[in-house]
Amino acid sequence: MKEKLSALLDSELTAQECDAVLSAMQADPALHADWQQWHLVGDVLKQEHPILSPDFMSRFSERLAAEPIVIAPVAHRRKRDILRRAIAPVSVAASVAFVSMVGWQAYRGAAQTPASVQTTAQAAVNGQVQPMVAQAGNNPRLRAYLAAHRIDNGNVFASQDVMAVSYQEAPAR
């Protein structure tokens, strides 16, 4: 079953296999714990986002409730058929449910992580493992360059927060 779980993690399963593994995970708490820890290790290794804090889920729910209406361009909207209209609310609900589940798993995972997992993963990061594309966000040098670039863009209103953050790190000029 662990191979199946690993394959699920790598998105290599068919829809039916996914369902099977997911229900197995629901039945077997040990499998569920593995799933969370693998994700945590992946998160630490990839450093795509900060490790989620234990109160992630409650804060996420609050912010979801307070979310403003997102204004996004509607490209060439065609007439939607009745079926799609009927399905839309369902798919929205499904998305929310999915995000909630992922968030909840992350919350559980973070809460239950033995310290050793984190240390091992961190050691791996400090070793040879190098991500293909680095994130500039945690590099003060690149952050200063980003800020300089934005100033020269001339958009005095944009990205003030980013600029402010970058300048906090800068010594007196």
């Binding site: 500039a136 040098r141 360059y145 980003l146 670039h149």
Partner: peptide, 18 residues
């Protein structure tokens, strides 16, 4: 923007994004 400075071996080379 292009920034030119003396080479520093501590700096990671290649692509990145923000």
């Amino acid at each position: 923007s292009v920034f030119l400075e003396p080479f520093d071996s501590k700096v990671a080379l290649g692509p990145s994004d923000q």
